[in-house]
């Protein structure tokens, strides 16, 4: 069974790379550009992993994450936050919001894929 990943990211060139990487690794990938759409997409179909950018139009990634964690139905969804701000404070903020993992931009593509796989319990080759 294919694991599904929801990519929440507003920069199209980053989205291009992410979809390529995830699909190549066998994940069913969907993409949205802002937080509200992300929540709508999740309601439509619960993904296994959410790759959540912090800097989003309208509402930021932290509040989206909190909302995900606020919903018991989504307790098994893994949230990995993507941020261009590399400070420890931002990491702590993400963790506090209930994120499972934290990836700093620019990221290593292999590292990112490994983390997504680890999140869904797949062995990293």
């Amino acid at each position: 069974m294919d694991h599904s990943v929801l990519v929440v990211e507003d920069d199209e060139n980053i989205v291009l790379s992410l979809t390529f990487l995830l699909e190549k690794s066998g994940f069913a990938t969907r993409v949205v550009g802002d937080g509200n759409s992300a929540l709508g997409e999740m309601r439509a179909a619960k993904p296994d992993v959410v790759l959540l950018d912090v800097m989003l139009p309208e509402r930021d990634g932290y509040s989206v994450c909190e909302e995900i964690r606020g919903n018991a139905a989504w307790s098994d969804v893994h949230v990995i936050m993507l941020t261009a701000k590399g400070r420890a404070a931002d990491r702590d903020k993400g963790m506090a919001a209930g994120a499972d993992d934290f990836v700093t931009k620019p990221f290593s593509t292999r590292d990112l894929v490994a983390r997504v796989k680890a999140a869904v319990g797949l062995a990293v080759e």
Binding site: L16, S17, L18, K105, P106, F107, S108, T109
Partner: peptide, 18 residues
């Protein structure tokens, strides 16, 4: 500024690695 630099850098690195 860091963020603004990191965003294009992210694309460049990711594309390069791919």
């Amino acid at each position: 500024v860091g963020h603004e630099f990191r965003t294009p850098l992210t694309s460049i690195r990711a594309a390069g690695e791919i």
